[in-house]
Computed example of a mutant assay.
Amino acid sequence: FRNFDVIYGYNAAESYALAIAHLADRIKGGKAFATPWPTDDPGLSRQERRELQTLLANRGHPIGEIDGMIGANSRQAIQAEQKRLGMAVDGRPGQKLLTTLRAPPPGR
């Protein structure tokens, strides 16, 4: 994941970082992807990633700087919320999680 984060820091597009990291793995003899891209849950724009980080920070997760860059702290917070919500725990910031976290808590 550290290599992915470095590549992602250069160009904050999941598809770009994933493609470059996968290309590097393939060049060194790695296998093709074992799981297809989760096309049923579109990714987030940089503004939406900032919003997601804000929502996670407001729930007490130690995000650090709200910058729209999904690093280790953000991924851990995403995984914690995915687990709490009964979602697949993959640490991926997507529209489904953002939409769920935008909704007011029950009883409000």
Rank of each mutant, 00 (worst) to 15 (best):
Leu98Lys: 05
Pro93Lys: 11
Arg75Cys: 01
Arg50Met: 14
Ile66Trp: 08
Leu85Thr: 04
Leu55Cys: 05
Gly60Tyr: 05
Ile66Arg: 05
Lys83Glu: 11
Gln76Ala: 12
Leu55Met: 08
Arg75Ala: 01
Glu51Phe: 01
Ile66Val: 13
Gln95Leu: 10
Arg59Glu: 01
Glu48Ser: 07
Glu51Cys: 01
Ala88Met: 10
Thr100Ile: 06
Gln47Ile: 06
Gln76Thr: 12
Gly64Glu: 07
Leu101Tyr: 00
Pro62Asp: 13
Ala88Trp: 09
Ser74Cys: 07
Asp90Ala: 11
Gln95Ser: 09
Gln53Leu: 03
Gln47Ser: 05
Arg92Asp: 12
Ser74Asn: 02
Gln82Arg: 12
Ile78Thr: 03
Arg92Ala: 14
Leu55Gly: 04
Gln47Leu: 07
Leu101Gln: 00
Pro93Thr: 13
Pro93Leu: 12
Pro62Phe: 12
Gly68Val: 11
Arg92Ile: 15
Thr100Gly: 00
Gln95Tyr: 04
His61Cys: 09
Gly60Gln: 04
Ala88Ile: 14
Lys96Trp: 00
Arg49Ala: 07
Thr54Gly: 14
Arg84Gln: 15
Gly94Asn: 06
Gly60Leu: 06
Glu65Met: 12
Thr99Lys: 10
Glu81Gly: 05
Pro106Gln: 14
Arg102Glu: 00
Leu85Ser: 08
Lys96Leu: 05
Gln47Tyr: 03
Ser74Val: 08
Glu51Gly: 00
Gly86Cys: 11
Val89Gly: 07
Ala77Leu: 07
Asn73His: 12
Gln79Lys: 08
Glu81Asp: 01
Asn73Tyr: 08
Asp90Trp: 08
Gly60Asn: 03
Ile63Ser: 02
Asn73Pro: 04
His61Pro: 02
Gln47Arg: 03
Thr54His: 12
Ile63Leu: 05
Ala88Arg: 10
Gly86Met: 12
Ala77Phe: 05
Gly71Leu: 04
Pro106Ile: 15
Leu52Glu: 02
Arg92Leu: 15
Asp90Tyr: 09
Thr100Tyr: 02
Pro93Gly: 15
Gly71Glu: 05
His61Arg: 07
Pro105His: 11
Leu55Pro: 02
Gly86Asn: 09
Gly64Phe: 09
Gln82Asn: 11
Lys96Phe: 01
Ala103Pro: 07
Gln53Gly: 01
Pro93Phe: 13
Asp90Cys: 10
Met87Phe: 15
Arg84Ala: 15
Gly68Leu: 09
Val89Cys: 08
Leu97Phe: 09
Arg59His: 03
Leu98Arg: 06
